[in-house]
Simulated assay, not measured.
Amino acid sequence: MKNTKFILCLSCVVLSMASCRKDDSFIPEDQEQLPAEPSVELAGFYLLNEANMGSNKSSLDYYDFNSGNYRKNIYSQANPNATLGLGDVGNDIKIYGSRLYVVVNMSDKVEVLAAKTAKRIGQINIPNCRYITFYKSKAYITAYDGYVSVVDTASLKEEKQIAVGKQPEEMAIVGTKLYVANSGGYNYPNYERTVSVIDLNTLSETKRIDVAINLHRLKADQYGDLYVTSRGDYYNIPSNLFVIDTKTDQVKKTFNLAASNIAIDKDEAYLYSVEWNNNTGSNAISYAKINVKDETIISKSFITDGTDQSIVIPYGIAVNPVNSDVYVTDAKDYVSPGTLYCFDKAGKKKFSVTTGDIPAHLVFLNK
């Protein structure tokens, strides 16, 4: 795992990103014009750029579907008094209600912003935080110290810590159960190999499901199944993709397919793999598309026009829930600005745009 891991117009009092009004106060290098993608349901999306660990260069971009404006580094522009910027290594981003939550791993915090303006509301302090999800009035945040933090979304105060496995990563909720992928990423070669199950009624861990070593991504489909990725050991055990049946809380399928990240849209899952091997000193990159209804591989690549050959390091993936466009980010050399690619459902490139350093996490904003 590589843990690398607006300027506001002075006369403007309220800035709404959902507006299609052109804002001439943005300097040219902080804005690009892309194709407009009007949507009844969606205003646009945020892209969180991780940036390299120690650089304190995490940043936030925004694409307005109505105007086609792609705005860069909007956190600093919306919050000019935040002299330290967004922080060090942006690791996750989610919208819940009217708020945008940005997990900043090495800065040990979750920034809480107004979803429509990116203006800062508050901060949640969680050491070595990784991922965030929500259930009712609570936020659940994984911390590498081996627990899930339970935070009240009204007060932004931590109410409880639920012990799980070592170095927990991504989470998913099915019914009243919270599933947590445990990695043990600091413990080579003795990685963790379980998914913790937390009862959201009692806020306690009830069991651990044995899956595979060094787990990372965890996504739920519409049928009550979980797709979980294993990063392997970077030597002889390759990465893999597993399916957990949440009715039985057991692994029911092993794909034997390299997987670093996965996005699920209705009956289809899109995934890529960047698999580093210490034996060869190189990455193996691959893509795939899966039918989650019958759990079969549809294609060994969802990119059909050859653009995959231009992507150096696929690093993030998301699917537009309305039109099923697929977004893939390219981290390139990890120190230069990256690229965001948009593909239609047929796998053909619609556009690309330059982002901040190490673009990684994307979330859609409703109107």
Rank of each mutant, 00 (worst) to 15 (best):
I141Y: 07
Y63S: 04
S58H: 07
I121Q: 10
I95C: 12
V102Y: 02
S149L: 00
G85Y: 14
M53P: 00
K116F: 09
G122N: 08
G122P: 03
L113F: 05
E50Q: 14
V110R: 00
L100I: 08
G97C: 10
Y75H: 10
T133D: 12
D145E: 15
G146L: 05
K94L: 07
S67E: 06
M106E: 13
D152V: 05
G68N: 01
G146V: 03
V102M: 02
A139P: 04
I93F: 02
K138V: 01
D64P: 00
M106V: 11
Y140L: 12
K116P: 00
N128P: 00
A154T: 11
S59D: 06
R130F: 13
G85K: 10
I132N: 02
K136F: 08
G90A: 08
I141D: 06
S149P: 00
R130K: 14
T133S: 14
G85E: 13
L48P: 07
N125A: 09
A82M: 15
Q123E: 15
A51K: 10
L86H: 05
K57R: 14
I121S: 02
N91L: 12
V110T: 03
G68Y: 03
E159C: 01
S137T: 14
L156G: 07
I95K: 12
N69Q: 13
L86V: 04
Y147N: 04
G85F: 14
N81H: 15
N125T: 07
L113W: 04
T153S: 14
V112T: 04
A114I: 07
Y70V: 03
I132F: 01
V89F: 07
S67D: 04
G54K: 09
N73T: 10
I141W: 07
L113H: 03
N81F: 15
V148S: 03
N79G: 10
Y62T: 05
G90M: 06
Y70E: 04
C129V: 09
T83Y: 15
K57Y: 10
V148F: 02
P127M: 01
N125F: 05
K138Y: 06
T83D: 13
V148L: 05
V89K: 06
K116V: 11
V151M: 00
V112Y: 03
Y144E: 12
I124G: 08
L113A: 05
K157M: 04
N128R: 13
M53R: 13
D61L: 06
L113E: 05
Y131D: 08
S149E: 08
Y147R: 01
A51P: 06
V148E: 04
I74N: 07
R130Q: 14
A118Q: 04
N49C: 11
S55A: 13
N125D: 11
G85L: 12
E50W: 09
K136M: 09
Y140C: 01
Y63V: 02
L47T: 06
